Amino acid sequence: MNTTPTPRIAIIGAGPSGLTCARILQQHGIAATIYDHEAGLDARDQGGTLDLHEDNGQIALREAGLLEDFFRLSRPEGQETRQMDPAGAVLFHHTPDEGERFKPEIDRGQLRDLLLNSLEPGTVRWGHTLRSVEGPATGPRQLHFTNGTVVEADLVIGADGAWSKVRRTISDATPQYSGVSFLEAWFHDVENKHPEIAELVGQGSAAAADGDRCLFAQRNSGNHIRVYIIQRVPADWITADGLTIQDTDGIRALLLDRYRNWSPSLRRLLADNDGLYVDRPIYALPVPHAWEHNPTVTLLGDAAHLMPPLGVGVNLAMLDACELALAIAHHNTVDDAVLAYEKTMLPRSAEMQQLLENGAEGLLSTELPDFATGKGH
């Protein structure tokens, strides 16, 4: 980038998009600092597995110089998918071909570590929860954090997810509940402790739906499986039934009743889990989501285009990050770079948002020919 002095770039959020953006910027000799609200890299579980697609997520990793490292960590066998009916009969089974690399799986934590370890030391500042973005639209911007820190930046990149605080600077849009909720269940040491479930799921994923409910089970690395219990329910369905998320036995009894007509093999996915359930109601931004161009603030990933979890979220977020970083590297001003990035990103995300609108409902459908493309991403 030719601008003098070098712009001060602040990225909010150390998820896949923020980390990818910083990595590619550093590949081009451009400094960026990431601010994340978590206390450190091990502050919480990073979630389940995801697939990175050849036509978006892998493009970003190639530009980041990390594609071969990704392939060494990924699980191509995770592309195996099975779709069943509630009676447990297999309706569809895909086994990946030898060497198939279109969308291999990787645990979210492994991907995050790969990206984090590629960055220059000190790139990520943990324990920084953003309170507000202040200053004129033309810059510089002042980032106010809840720990009292104030940082000045020439470009603020919101990679801070569904409930982005950066988004409030340029958009009034807020995520809306989709009407569909995920309840996550974990299974550990599955080959020894849960061999029937390990056999049912295989090396990839297995799903069944009846039009109102769905079960989606997915192999993770380290002999783990995560199951997503998907229902059309109010966002507060657990408390509405007089329960709390800590009441594992109460939730389990309720689920077994709701899925009482399903096969015993599938009902194990509801009831044999290790530990607490995790409540994940599904939200999405209005369709389409756009904003008036701002020369000092822009958005990536879920902050820009939160959609139902149908396997595209992280992939699009990383492609966003790649394209923004390259735009910054190849334009003379931050403003020109943001304009160029949004000219491509906004139409693409609007098209995908429209395609996936009400897609959470589709997760419950019995008619999807390949449900396994719709993962909890």
Rank of each mutant, 00 (worst) to 15 (best):
E54F: 13
R72A: 15
L67G: 12
E77A: 15
D85G: 04
N56C: 12
Q79N: 10
S74G: 07
G78T: 09
D85C: 04
Q79D: 09
L61Y: 08
E80H: 04
T81V: 08
R72C: 12
R72E: 15
R82V: 07
L73Y: 08
R62E: 13
R82G: 11
P86L: 01
S74N: 07
A64G: 14
A64T: 06
A60G: 12
A60R: 12
I59R: 15
R62T: 10
E68S: 10
E80L: 00
E63C: 13
D85K: 03
N56K: 03
F70A: 10
E77G: 12
Q58H: 03
E63Y: 06
Q58N: 06
E68L: 09
L61E: 03
L73S: 07
E80A: 14
Q83W: 07
Q58F: 02
Q83E: 13
L61C: 06
R75P: 05
M84R: 15
E77T: 13
Q58I: 02
M84D: 08
P86Y: 01
A87W: 05
L66F: 05
R62N: 12
I59N: 11
I59K: 15
A64L: 09
L67D: 02
L66G: 12
A87G: 12
G57K: 00
F70M: 09
P86T: 00
A60Y: 10
L73N: 03
A87L: 03
R62W: 04
G57E: 00
Q79P: 09
N56Y: 02
F71I: 12
M84S: 08
A64S: 13
T81M: 12
R62Q: 14
G57W: 00
S74H: 04
E68G: 08
D85V: 02
P76D: 07
D85W: 02
E54C: 11
M84Q: 14
A60C: 11
L61D: 03
R72H: 15
R75C: 07
P76M: 06
R75D: 11
D85L: 00
P76E: 05
M84A: 12
E77M: 07
D85E: 05
R82C: 09
I59M: 14
Q58D: 10
L67C: 09
R72W: 08
R75E: 06
E63D: 15
M84L: 15
E63P: 07
Q58A: 06
F71D: 07
R62D: 12
L67W: 09
E80M: 05
E80T: 02
G78K: 01
A64N: 11
P76A: 05
P86D: 02
Q58K: 04
M84G: 04
A87V: 03
F70N: 09
T81W: 02
P86H: 00
L73F: 08
A64Y: 05
T81N: 09
E54S: 15
P86C: 01
L66Y: 09
R82K: 14
L66Q: 04
R62A: 15
N56L: 04
D69H: 14
A64P: 11
